[in-house]
């Protein structure tokens, strides 16, 4: 555990708190992509299957349970809550996320470090996480004025990915035999997807006006 990894995890946690806060406090999920949230639920389930048979640390196990719980809570609110589900902009959330799932599965079957059931699913979760934000980014472009909490949620998610890159650089320079090419390449692609969003987020923040993605 290093400071970048801890900061990354806490930023990830904070992003989920911000999103849940928006949904619960405003009773609205306007501008939030249910497809992205469902992809994250799939990511967490397939990655954290190791909760059942491997223990790394209490910290890891607790965080995994919290991430799983928050992902399913968000999907529950967006799809089933009697008030919130009516605020979901179905017609703006049209990204074909099934292609992302299928593509990630094919890639995980082709490129993985060990051809076992759990390792392939774990690799699939890494590939799927890299692209899971795409439906949300597309939806932001279509939404027009983006409320503060939704904008901050996506910003915090991007920050979390950036901090993980710093964590890898730190670990690579301090640990022996630390080499994770699949995770690194996926993570760099994932972070790069936020570049456009970051540009407009900081520009609008600087000009002190509501976030709009052209």
């Amino acid at each position: 555990m290093n400071v970048f990894r801890l900061a990354g995890d806490l930023t990830h946690l904070l992003s989920l708190v911000v999103l849940l806060l928006k949904i619960v406090a405003t009773k609205s999920c306007r501008g939030v992509s249910a497809k992205t949230q469902e992809l994250y639920a799939i990511v967490f389930v397939t990655r954290y299957l190791d909760l059942l048979f491997s223990f790394v640390s209490l910290y890891n196990s607790v965080m995994k349970v919290v991430f799983l719980g928050s992902a399913f809570s968000i999907v529950y609110f967006m799809r089933y809550h009697k008030v919130v589900r009516h605020t979901y902009d179905r017609e703006l959330d049209t990204f074909r996320s099934s292609f992302l799932v299928a593509g990630s599965m094919v890639l995980a079957l082709l490129i993985n470090s060990k051809y076992t059931f759990f390792e392939v699913l774990w690799t699939f979760s890494i590939y799927l996480e890299a692209v899971a934000i795409l439906p949300q980014l597309v939806m932001l472009q279509r939404t027009g004025n983006i409320d503060n909490l939704t904008g901050n949620y996506v910003f915090l998610l991007g920050m979390y990915r950036g901090l993980y890159i710093l964590n890898w650089i730190y670990r690579y320079s301090t640990e022996r035999r630390y080499w994770q090419m699949i995770v690194w390449v996926s993570g760099i692609i994932q972070t790069a997807l936020y570049a456009d969003f970051f540009y407009y987020y900081l520009k609008c923040w600087n000009e002190n006006r509501t976030l709009v993605i052209p």
Partner: peptide, 10 residues
């Protein structure tokens, strides 16, 4: 069993 690299990350 020592787990490889990123399996100890979230």
């Amino acid at each position: 069993q020592i787990r490889r690299g990123a399996h100890d990350e979230l």
